[in-house]
Amino acid sequence: MTPAAVSAGTEQALCEATERLFTGQPTRTDGKLTKNNLWREAGVSRATMNRATSVLADWDNRVGQSPATLLAESDALRE
């Protein structure tokens, strides 16, 4: 059985939380770009966040392209 998709309101809450975290304007967390902060920032459960596959795909893509990630990869290559 496949898990149920999230509601439009939940998806919107996760998208808004993503934007707040990536713009450095968190309201409920310390602002680190982690999935733990994403679900907390959105005010949903971790299980609910995990059902929002399109939001998580966007999150993973954006985290992979964030300046902090690129800097860490660059530092690792120099070692």
Rank of each mutant, 00 (worst) to 15 (best):
E16S: 13
E16R: 13
E41C: 08
R40C: 09
P67I: 09
A5Y: 06
L71Y: 11
V6L: 08
A47Y: 07
Q25S: 06
K35I: 12
P26D: 10
A5R: 12
N61E: 11
Q12H: 12
C15T: 14
T34P: 04
Q25W: 00
E79K: 15
T53I: 07
K32H: 14
T18K: 10
R40Y: 07
R20W: 06
S54T: 14
A47I: 07
T34H: 08
R78I: 13
T69C: 01
A42V: 05
L38K: 04
M1K: 09
E16K: 12
V55L: 02
T48D: 00
L77Q: 13
S7M: 05
L71R: 14
L71C: 05
W39R: 02
L38F: 09
T10C: 06
T69W: 06
W59P: 01
L38S: 08
R20V: 02
W59T: 04
G31P: 09
R46G: 06
R62I: 01
T27W: 00
G43N: 03
T27S: 08
V44K: 00
T69D: 00
T2Q: 11
W59V: 03
T23K: 13
G9S: 14
W39T: 02
D75G: 05
D30G: 13
A17R: 05
G64Y: 03
A13I: 05
L21S: 06
L21T: 07
R20N: 07
A13C: 04
A52Y: 01
T69N: 07
V63K: 15
T34S: 15
E19C: 02
E19V: 12
Q12F: 10
P26I: 08
A5V: 07
T53S: 09
G64K: 07
V63S: 02
L38W: 10
E79A: 15
Q25N: 09
A42D: 03
V55G: 02
G24D: 06
T23S: 11
E19Q: 11
V44I: 04
A52E: 03
R62H: 04
A68C: 03
A8I: 10
V63G: 01
G64E: 05
